[in-house]
Amino acid sequence: MSAAARAVDVWKVYGSGEAQVIALRGVNLEVERGKFTAIMGPSGSGKSTLMHCLAGLDSVTRGEVAVGDTRVTGLSDAGLTRLRREKVGFIFQQFNLLPTLTAEENITLPLAISGRKPDKAWYDTVIQTVGLGDRLGHRPSQLSGGQQQRVACARALVSRPEVIFADEPTGNLDSRSGADILGFLRRSVSEFGQTIVMVTHDANAASYADRVIFLADGRIVDEIENPTAEAVLDKIKSLDTLAVSEDRVEVAE
């Protein structure tokens, strides 16, 4: 079976000349279907960039990206729109919801946009999983940050996309609410076979994943399968020393 998403020798360069920033330097990645993949790395290492490229939100400078069996690179706007409707779901760090819609309307928005009816049983399951039963009629302004992120999760899940991309979904939450969200994501992978790619800074968050990818300076530098929080922390430390020693080398030169 093919990967849920794939990056082949992906380069991403922003700007040109003096202001040129190389955000990704030849990234190769296969996101396994039905797995929970976390992407970690220091700030500015290219995590968000990689995720955006994988999701077709951003174009790559070189290389190729595919979601399922759809080649993302080179898709027209209409093609990208179809991709977003049918194959990917998003959870952003914040501002996930339309303030004019109720929680329920926000959840069903992707389906409504593509003119699909929610599968009643699946919808109920999702609502139950994220535990929003009594809040469905509320507007985002009447929900707490944690509740808003749960709505965002439900929205991503309800259309059963090929992959859900989440960029620091717990970044703005306290640890309790964050743990709740991570719990849902974990369950949706384990129980429903959903594929999820999540960017995070938090070793604890990464420990919910099946696999952690480490990015540094636009390159995949390491990865761990079935991580624990301690293992992730250790890895980060060792990567930091590596970076520091690289710095020393540069200084020595």
Binding site: A78, T81, E86, F90, F95, N96, P110, S114
Partner: peptide, 16 residues
Amino acid sequence: TRELGLVRAVGLSRGG
């Protein structure tokens, strides 16, 4: 602007 980005991200087409 941000809302427009969001609805596009969840699949609204340009025509939409």
